[in-house]
Write a protein that binds this DNA or RNA. Structure first.
Lengths: 307, 307
DNA sequence: GAAGGTCTGTCAAGTGTTTGTTCAAGGTTT
DNA sequence: AAACCTTGAACAAACACTTGACAGACCTTC
């Protein structure tokens, strides 16, 4: 009875049907029916015959569900999903968000679930939902469909009094640390390197972390100086690291003001400013260039310019 | 503490099954079953046939447990853990600093290498060294032998002018994010739960993160509110989460002062204060109790009292 | 409108697998 | 002697499998 090694070459953690049903919110019986009737997935099996689903399987089943909830008949949805899969030679290039048909309804549930879990200080549930999200989305999709929307909603509800400081604090802290854990290894690679910085007074760095993840996905090496980084620190780090570009993230007005006070940054490296507080006047004032929203577009632009 | 250490050739501390079971929170019978069924570890034996587990064994068993709590079936989790181990050809940090072949287990060299890498903004090298450290040490060892000493040295060199703000900033940021990534999953488990908080004005949270890791090692579930948490936030979170104990980490004098200003915390839960700035007068002033250094001892004391 | 057909999600029955746990009988460590 | 550990067998609960069936929704045809 030596270990029944499943042929799991890619080192990807496969899950059984129950877990997948829980994650995707589809009854196990339905999953089996879809497989039997439409051959939409073909999970590997254990020696004992248990189904083992990959992330790709999960993605397909989710988009199937999404199409159905939008009113597409199951048979039709299935044929679209399998056609999609056949037409996609390999992993989606990088630019694209989730495949073509957005997983909107589903990401809606995901977001709601996440907001619930975070609002009730249930980190375990939140991490579980983030697991699902990571299995179901590309990095771009995760950021644009889940993380940033959840952060925005959290901020709005907090401003409207619907969330306490504690809940807001907890939510951002959980998301932030999860994103940082995804970010492990983003400093390595072959591509151009970017130095990511939050200037003095700027404490929101999650957006910048997300941006770093998306850049790494596009081949960049990331050096990250977190929130509230002194200008002098930034200068010195830029000198040492010698990146292709420096990206400043600005949302807070006081951060903007502080930057303007310190005038031209005087780096030898191109500087871009991004974030909700980044405007043309700020960019001019510090000798930088504006990197406009939305975030995927910004990542693409940067890659096209300096990649 | 009751270090059942039997030296083997390399002088690595080995533990018997009972000790390991307690530490990792996995019943001894389960450990034996995993070994028998999945051959996930192969502990050495005493002459009498008792199992002796190495740190690498412990690390594997923990990652197995981690996968299981995330919903992966045990058999799958096992195959992934063993595949991981096989695919890791004993990562040898390349680069100038470490001349030693194989794993860098000398804590002095490790620390020096880490300080070098961090001081020159070389995150890749730093992460490699941290990889080595994690393979070679238990969580307790990692914290007490590597992380905290490196942080302390960094602080000292910075104070003495040997390090720039930039270097200090970068170093703590890299270490902090790595520790947070190790911390994934610390909210889950069966044991008692602890709420870990840095009070207003306290921005150093790495020590508290380390403490959380050590508690989780001892079976605790951790809820973490990061740096600079408002008192009100803490109160509300404590109410919601209803932990067995609240731990405040205090190093900065202003944090201490702010806490004293706000007087008794008035929680229904025992509160402990820890950290370099924690003194008896502070503890008394806020109706808390002092949790004395060193950090492993503090973790043991807490576990003995509330575990 | 009624009748018949197909599609689809769900359920039940009966079998098999996986996995944590328990027990007994005995050896080791301190 | 007490505490700890060993092996091997066995067990129960949770989980999953297949097959077959069925009700409701929807469509076509009479």
């Amino acid at each position: 009875m030596s270990g029944a090694e499943s042929p799991n070459g890619s080192g990807e953690p496969l899950v059984r049907i129950g877990e997948l049903a829980r994650r995707a919110g589809i009854p196990a019986a339905t999953l089996r029916a879809w497989e039997r009737r439409y051959a939409i997935v073909e999970p590997t099996r254990t020696e004992g015959g248990y189904r083992l689903y990959s992330r790709e399987d999960e993605r397909r089943l989710r988009s199937m569900l999404d199409l159905i909830t939008r009113g597409v008949a199951p048979a039709e949805a299935a044929s679209r999903v399998t056609a999609d899969a056949a037409a996609t030679p390999r992993a989606t290039p990088r630019g694209a968000s989730p495949p073509a048909p957005g997983l909107l309804t589903n990401s809606g549930e995901l977001r709601e679930g996440l907001l619930d879990a975070l609002g009730s200080f249930d980190e375990v549930a939140a991490q579980r939902l983030l697991d699902s999200a990571m299995a179901a989305y590309t990095v771009d999709g995760l950021v644009t469909e889940v993380v940033l929307p959840v952060l925005r909603t959290t901020g709005e509800r907090w401003a409207a009094g619907g969330l306490s400081v504690a809940q807001e604090h907890f939510s951002t802290s959980v998301i932030r640390s999860r994103m940082m854990s995804v970010a492990r290894g983003w400093a390595s690679g072959e591509g151009p390197s970017a130095l990511l910085v939050c200037p003095p007074g700027e404490v929101h760095d999650i957006g910048l972390i997300c941006f770093g993840l998306m850049l790494h996905e596009r081949g960049w090496q990331i050096s990250f100086l977190g929130a509230d980084t002194p200008i002098e620190t930034m200068r010195e780090a830029a000198l040492q690291i010698d990146p292709r570009v420096v990206v400043l993230s600005v949302t807070a007005p006081q951060a903007s003001a502080a930057l303007l006070d310190s005038g031209e940054l005087g780096l030898r490296v191109p500087v871009m400013v991004a974030g909700a507080g980044a405007v043309e006047s700020l960019a001019e004032g510090i000798g930088a260039e504006l990197l406009a929203d939305p975030i995927e577009r910004a990542a693409d632009v940067l890659t096209a310019r300096f990649g």
